[in-house]
Design a protein around this nucleic acid. Structure first.
Lengths: 404, 404
DNA sequence: GCAGTTTGTTTAGTTGCGGCACAAACTCAG
DNA sequence: CTGAGTTTGTGCCGCAACTAAACAAACTGC
């Protein structure tokens, strides 16, 4: 009998229909009406109508055909599409140097509920993740909503396919912790349904900003961000996160941006990492750095409130120049059509946008690629929303299968 | 037995969707038999049979159901699939510092005919491209085969969507020449049918090696190569060339690999470009560089024949160390699962593979990503074959539409 | 109130492909 | 040589997803 031995992935591999793409369009806000959905999908009105009706029947979106809410343009007003407020949610969790936080996130990146951020971060990942998942489970019980998955953002590169955190330096976890499995175990133990995913926070920030924030519409989106210590990067290509063959792409912290700069633990000198993080800024500006978990806020405040102080301004300009050098190097390699900056890099951009753009343009090989727009991240809780995107992905890929 | 002449129902519109993927599998040699095609496509035997029959009817592949040619394994032997030798071809052209060359390339990267390489390269792109296309048209007339497109490889970044050559330094063309349009005009004027494409030679080398050479099966393939002067890079992601938002990605020549190195025209010091090309090797080895168009051969010969000379060996090791530094930087950013090297970089790899691998592993952030395999390019005329791939792409995407 | 425009809905095909049953071509054991 | 076992090719049926076309509905502007 040929029944069991057939190993072909016949059913799962086939995209079932336009359901997934349609949901993604509503999810990212690119299909506000059924007419737009029709043209974006490139199908007939009949098909788009059937697809929208099915997504509504699945309890994912709302199709609003009320009469008077109209448009102003000619012709019959199109039905409005929106995500359903009472639809399913995913559990999103974030661990960083400040502590951890859990949230429920609906389609469209809508944060339904968040736990208060907790400050204590312990050296045992299982304990931390157990607590944060429990906080999320509590939110879930209070809300009464259906949960279809869970996502976690950690401040470390996450190696695939093992799901281990390689450099969770800022949160005192042992390097190589199997965070994905630990998180998945916590999720199961808390009785939360659906698959569990784990990713690097900057990667997830980029994903969130691409779908709901400053990266919307970009085809080659580069995101660079500093937290309290260290620099992270991420690349979103054609709507998909590019994290390399083993999840370790865009580790941009060790680009050389200052050959005579300070030594770095990687063995080189003047790496982007040690030249453009909050600690570098504070020491360059001759300020006493505070406790590690508040370095980012301290540096940001200094930039915003004392930019007329020559020492602060000089330090900012030095960092901007080095950041620009690093970004130019990345532009030459990746040729993105948009760059977004987070953390202290975002503050540096806003302190003197022209200077940063000029440096990048000057050190890029050709004007065209160097004139790439550089924008600040706009989304609140962007890595939380990004963690949610990870959990939403199966639903976006195949709503029928994911909700079954 | 002989192939059955008539299918009962001639449904010429049969396969819209699986046709392209099926042709690509045969084209890249990943579907030697219909049984493999069935499992690779993830469809039923019936579907794969229909698809193969239609590709045969289109004159693209051959389905060999002869009896005795069988396999040795159990069960009924599967029909063999191969590209049809008398099927259509594309015109491939290449311009580089040595001169230019035209060829006819069939499916499977098979070079059907090549013109003798011509040495004279003139400063007027229209004249050069006119001559090379005419040489190709002559091959085509002599062969009597059908031509379905044309592709050109140039030693310069090609900006999209304009199709202009930004830095054709080695061939004395004016920067910004609209090479794509010039080439397309020459192709039309020569009476050659099908669309015409233009790309950077290293990009096309990577594409060719990915489909038919040392890059086969890699999901994230990085290719780095030096010609006579200057370094180029390319990235193939999931079988598709990644050339950035405007075709300028992987301009890796100006990564800093030697902070105290020689000055570069880009304004920096110690760029990969000026530290690892043939001229750098020859001067470091204290040899008199010959004429520019034979630098690559001179350096390669020196490496192979006088590696026991201490000056040569020292120079090679210095270049290997710097190349390794540059590759490690790229590994940290792109996290490829395979690296292939061309030109002088290939020769350096073969001179001391262990040294290069050790440097890359040492300067990569994590062992895992640093232990990426580094291989030499294997394909003869790889940028010619790559130019052909460009022209084949529409056929691979939708055979019915492209051959209509 | 009417023409013009745009969109939603219904109905009738069309098609790519899975599922199944069976035939064909091979290997191997005896 | 023969029959069992295995793997693959082929014909047929039907479904699910889509298109095409005709019609109905809801808006604007004159």
């Amino acid at each position: 009998m040929n029944g069991k031995a057939t190993t072909t992935r016949t059913k799962l591999e086939r995209g079932r229909s336009a359901l997934g793409p349609a949901l993604e369009l509503v999810h990212t806000g690119r299909a506000p009406t059924r007419a737009v959905l029709t043209s974006e999908l490139g199908v007939t009105r009949a098909t788009a109508g059937a697809v929208a009706a099915e997504l509504e029947a699945l309890g994912l979106i709302r199709v609003d055909s009320s009469p008077g809410s109209a448009a102003g343009s000619q012709g019959r007003p199109s039905h409005r599409l929106s995500v359903l407020e009472t639809g399913p949610v995913v559990l999103a969790a974030q661990v960083h140097a400040d502590g951890f936080r859990a949230a429920l996130v609906g389609l469209g990146g809508r944060i339904v509920a968040t736990s208060p951020g907790c400050v204590a971060v312990m050296a045992d990942p299982a304990q931390v993740l157990g607590e944060v998942v429990e906080a999320g489970a509590e939110l879930l019980r209070a809300s009464g909503l259906r949960c279809v998955g869970a996502g976690l953002a950690v401040p470390s590169a996450v190696a695939e396919p093992e799901g281990t955190a390689l450099n969770p330096l800022h949160i005192a976890w042992p390097a190589g912790s199997p965070v994905r499995d630990i998180f998945a175990a916590c999720v199961r133990r808390a009785g939360i349904t659906g698959p569990a995913f784990t990713g690097n926070d900057v990667n997830l920030t980029a994903l969130a900003e691409h779908r709901h924030g400053a990266g919307r519409g970009a085809q080659h989106l580069l995101c660079v961000a500093t937290g309290h210590r260290g620099v992270g990067g991420a690349l979103v290509l054609d709507g998909r996160l590019h994290s390399g063959s083993s999840g370790l792409a865009l580790e941009v912290g060790h680009l050389t941006v200052n050959p005579e700069g300070r030594p770095c633990h990687c063995g080189g000198r003047g790496c982007l990492d040690v030249e453009t993080d909050p600690l570098a800024f504070l020491t360059t500006a001759r300020r006493e750095p505070g406790p590690e978990e508040s370095l980012l806020k301290q540096a940001g405040n200094l930039l915003r409130t004392e930019y007329d102080d020559p020492a602060v301004r000089q330090a900012a300009e030095a960092l901007i120049d080095r950041l620009g050098l690093g970004l130019a190097g990345l532009v030459n390699i990746l040729n993105p059509d948009r760059i977004i900056l987070g953390g202290l890099h975002r503050d540096l951009l806003e302190a003197d946008p022209e200077r940063l753009r000029a440096v990048v343009a000057d050190r890029s090989l050709w004007g065209r690629s160097g004139s790439v727009p550089i924008l600040p991240c706009t989304l609140a809780h962007n890595s939380l929303v990004g963690a949610a995107e990870l959990a939403w992905q199966p639903v976006l890929d195949d709503p029928l299968a994911a909700l079954a």
